[in-house]
Design a binder for these strands. Structure first.
Length: 432
RNA sequence: GGUGAGGUGGCCGAGUGGUCGAAGGCGCACGCCUGGAAAGUGUGUAUACGGCAACGUAUCGAGGGUUCAAAUCCCUCCCUCACCGCCA
């Protein structure tokens, strides 16, 4: 959520900044609503104050021995006037509050100044490339051909069990998938200073509102038939970031670099409307695994933290020797809650292109305001909104795809990257 | 899922429907005392919104209700604890 004070102070500037990411912010509507909210708030507060003092007066009189009825009679004029207006006024105030809240919950974050303009991924800015795409002296197979050829991957069976966009893996492939997860977690915990945590895979509505998935993107979620509403997590970002919800961190709890959590979870995405895109194979699934990195930092640290976070994700690709490029998303391609995002795109030889494998974002105080996540600034002694960040480190399923395709050999077997062999019990190849 | 007991400030813990945002304690901050410390002692110590400020309003798990007035009474829900049932 944006800072309502900042919006109020210069709505035009906010509107322009949001326009850069393709969002139309209706300044006139906001201003009218805010004025209404303020007036209703003042009116109802005044009335409440009157009622309170009248009630208090009755209490005082009763304390002095006056009968309750007599006491009421003495302040009757005031009370009857209040009774007539209070309900309407408090309802008006409540409604005005709710409306402006709803409006703001639907407004995305403002991009940082360095975020390039643009409306689609075509306008994203390449920051760097790492590694050389390997030249193959045989026709490359995609991961589906490779996995099915080895009889380790089965999309049809998943279709039978559940439906489209799920997958079944067997044997060494299933193990490679698990090895990738273990490798990533160990790297981030042992070398990058993250604490490993385990969290619920089902969350409530408040948690999803906190991260910005709701109220706008309900269609992307799997919703359970419970009361109250519960949802399968679309990413570990949701439960992990919500660890900070309604919480005030003492400075000592934040550590030098802030709080860093690494968390492996399955992710569930309904992706209603995405049918037709990436239908083949494991690129876009309803269920996939991800190792997520989440940070809570002091506001002045967030820019540097984003660079470090992206670096942590890049290290995974480097250790696996997978060529990739890093792009800064343009304003129009930013996620709803993000103020700045780097995507890491891994080289997929079968597609002859780079494909997203990690997205690392800084949210500034946008999520923190939605979930009232704060730290106590020792300089002021006051609670202030902290900054949140997260990034995939990495999407496991897509990393598996990248390993299969980049490490394939002419006979359709797969050379297991050296970094993973220890996690495979020494196994160095699939098939062959 | 059943029965019972509870949910109050950073923590513990009082609270009879009426000057209660809430006694007391712990913790923390600052001062006094001391050569220095401990002990002792004094003061302060929730959050949000509005206001230049004085201050006002809201919040005692959440939401409804009764009442002139609710931390306090009633209803529903959530959570915690104990025992039972079921289960990995």
């Amino acid at each position: 959520m944006l800072d309502i004070k900042a919006v109020r102070q210069d709505p035009q500037r906010v509107a322009e900044a949001l326009n850069a990411r393709g969002f139309q912010f209706d300044v006139a509507h906001f201003s009218a609503l805010d004025a209404r909210r303020k007036q209703a708030d003042i009116d109802s507060q005044n009335l409440l104050a009157e009622r309170k003092s009248a009630s208090r007066q009755i209490g005082v009189l009763v304390g002095q021995g006056v009968s309750v009825d007599d006491a009421k009679a003495q302040v009757n004029a005031q009370l009857s006037k209040i009774a007539g207006q209070l309900d309407a006024l408090t309802e008006e105030a409540r409604q005005a509050q709710a409306e402006i809240e709803e409006l703001l919950l639907g407004v995305p974050n403002v991009p940082l100044p360095e975020v390039p303009p643009g409306s689609s991924e075509a306008d994203n800015m390449e920051v760097l490339r790492w590694g050389e795409p390997k030249a193959f002296d045989f026709p490359v197979r995609d991961h589906v051909e490779l996995g099915e050829g080895l009889q380790l991957l089965d999309g049809e069976m998943a279709g039978k069990i559940t439906g489209s966009r799920f997958t079944v893996m067997y044997g060494k492939l299933a193990r490679l998938h698990r090895a990738l997860t273990q490798f990533m977690l160990d790297l981030h915990v042992q070398e990058h200073g993250y604490e490993e945590i385990y969290v619920p895979y089902i969350v409530n509505r408040d948690s999803l509102v906190g991260t910005g998935n709701l109220p706008k993107f309900e269609a992307d979620l799997f919703k359970l038939r419970t009361d109250p509403d519960l949802y399968l997590i679309p990413t570990a970002e949701v439960p992990v970031t919500n660890l900070a919800r309604d919480r005030i961190f003492e400075d000592g709890e934040m550590g030098e670099h802030g709080v860093r959590y690494a968390c492996h979870t399955p992710c569930f995405r309904s992706e209603a409307g995405s049918y037709g895109r990436d239908t083949r194979g494991m690129i876009r699934q309803h269920q996939f695994e991800k190792v997520e990195l989440v940070q809570f930092v002091r506001p002045h640290q967030s820019l540097q933290a984003l660079e470090q976070l992206a670096g942590h994700a890049e290290t995974v690709l480097q250790r696996l020797d997978l060529p990739y490029r890093k792009v800064m998303l343009c304003a129009g391609d930013l996620g709803f809650s993000s103020q700045k995002t780097y995507d890491l795109e891994v080289w997929l030889p079968a597609q002859n292109t780079y494909r997203e494998i990690s997205s690392c974002s800084s949210f500034g105080d946008y999520q923190a305001r939605r979930m009232r996540a704060r730290w106590r600034n020792p300089a002021s002694g006051k609670p202030e909104l902290l900054h949140t960040l997260n990034g995939s480190g990495l999407a496991v399923g897509r990393t598996l795809v990248a390993v299969l395709e980049n490490c394939q050999r002419a006979d359709g077997s797969i050379a297991v990257p050296v970094a993973l062999q220890a996690y495979m019990g020494g196994v160095s190849e699939l098939g062959g």
